[in-house]
Structure formats: C-alpha cells, structure tokens
C-alpha cells in the first residue's frame, strides 16, 4: 500500500536488468560492426544458419527470465492490495482491525472535490490557480481508502511523488487504499486527458498526524500551526 516503496523496489530491479540487456546487445552489435567489417574478413566467421540446441536453449533462458519478471510483477502487485496485505504477514502487512479512513474524491471538468463520510467537512478549490488548489487532507500512518468517481468524463488521480495513480469514472466508484507513512504535502495531477483545461487540473494531498486530522474533520480546517 506504500506505492512509492513498491515502485522503487520493482523499478530498481527492472532498471538493472534492462541496463544489463541493453549493454550486452549493444556490445555484441558494436563488436560485430568493428570485427566483422567485410574489409577485415575474407570469409564468414561462421556459416551455420541454424543451431537447434542453442536456439532452444536460449528460448528456455528467455522463458526463465519471463517467469521471474511475471513473479516480480504479480507478487508486488499483490503487496499493494489491501485485502491481500490484511491476510499476509510481509513487510507491507497491516495490523488487523485498522479499518481504512474513508475519503470520497470527485473529479470534474476541471478540478477536484473531496468529502469525508460521517463529517460535514469538504474540500474544493480552483485548480487553475496555484494558490487556491484543493488540499485533500488525510491522516498519516493509517490506511486511507479513496473512493474515486467523476461527475462528467474520465479523469485520473495521480500523485507523482508517491507513485500512485487511479482513474476516476462517471457512474463508477474506484477504490484506492494506500498509506502515507510520512507527514507532508504532495502535488497531485490529472493524468487522463479530459478536455481543454486538463493541463491545470492540479491539487494537493496533505498527510497530517491523527490529532490534527480529527480536528480537521470536526472544524473543516487544520488547526493553526499544523505541520506541513
């Protein structure tokens, strides 16, 4: 549920593999260009046009690589799943009974609003004005369930620094459960093209300690001197 940590882990491994493969292929290519120039070679380095054992062996190696990458993909995708983390005991596991905090987020052309079930507090703003962007407040350290929907077209809720994204549809509610290990404020963007002012559909998500969050739910504003 810590999307950033999982992204960094998986992307880091993949980057090493991809870099290794790229260097290997390019080295073979450059080696062939340098060593196999027609002027340098009187005859072909080797004449065979097929070699079944080598080909099948390479296919098996590729199959093994694919199996590892599929495992990497699926196991980490499940590490992000709230239900799976409840059942499991891995580093991402969440203590049983920690029911997620509910935040309802609605996208529209061209901004966002948020409400908090059980509270009269709500959030909106003017996305095109950097100083007046909506600030969606969430508690730090507890699982938060965003219920994402849209009033008009398809949008997408993206927090680049936290490596998380989920689309918002009309006539459909998408659930996104995640945790905010640290307090802080992050820029969010709409990443699904949604019309003329898609460009400016920015917002903030702000994670605060639980006591400040409770105060926010009661009064509709963060207490003075709240940590950013």
């Amino acid at each position: 549920m810590d999307y950033r940590a999982v992204f960094d882990h998986v992307f880091g491994i993949q980057l090493w593999i991809a870099g290794g493969v790229f260097v290997l292929v390019t080295a073979l290519l450059v080696g062939a260009i340098v060593l196999n120039r027609a002027r340098r070679r009187d005859k072909l380095p080797f004449a065979a046009a097929e070699h079944n054992a080598v080909e099948i062996g390479f296919a098996v190696v590729l199959g093994g690589a694919a199996a590892f990458l599929v495992w990497l993909s699926l196991s980490n995708n499940h590490a992000l799943d709230y239900t799976d983390t409840q059942a499991g005991s891995g580093p991402q596991a969440v203590a049983a009974g920690a029911a997620p905090v509910q935040v309802a987020v609605t996208a529209f052309q061209w901004c966002w609003s948020a409400s908090y079930p059980g509270s009269s507090t709500s959030v909106t703003g003017s996305c095109a004005t950097p100083g007046d962007r909506p600030v969606i407040v969430v508690p730090q350290g507890r699982p938060v369930e965003f219920s994402l929907t849209s009033r008009d077209v398809v949008h997408a809720f993206w927090i680049p620094q936290l490596a998380v994204k989920r689309d918002a549809y009309p006539d459909h509610v998408n659930s996104l459960v995640m945790t905010f290990p640290d307090a802080g404020q992050w820029l969010g963007r709409c990443s699904e093209y949604c019309g003329t002012h898609h460009t400016t559909m920015d917002f903030y998500v702000r994670a605060v300690p639980d006591d400040q969050y409770q105060s926010f739910l009661q009064t509709g504003a963060l207490p003075g001197g709240a940590t950013a």
């Binding site: 073979l28 290519l29 080696g31 062939a32 260009i33 196999n36 120039r37 027609a38 070679r41 005859k43 072909l44 380095p45 080797f46 004449a47 065979a48």
Partner: peptide
C-alpha cells in the same frame, strides 16, 4: 551480425 561479413 556476429556471423556476417558486414557492409555499411
């Protein structure tokens, strides 16, 4: 490529 005589 590895088994060829290359022209460019």
């Amino acid at each position: 490529l590895v088994g060829g005589r290359l022209r460019f």
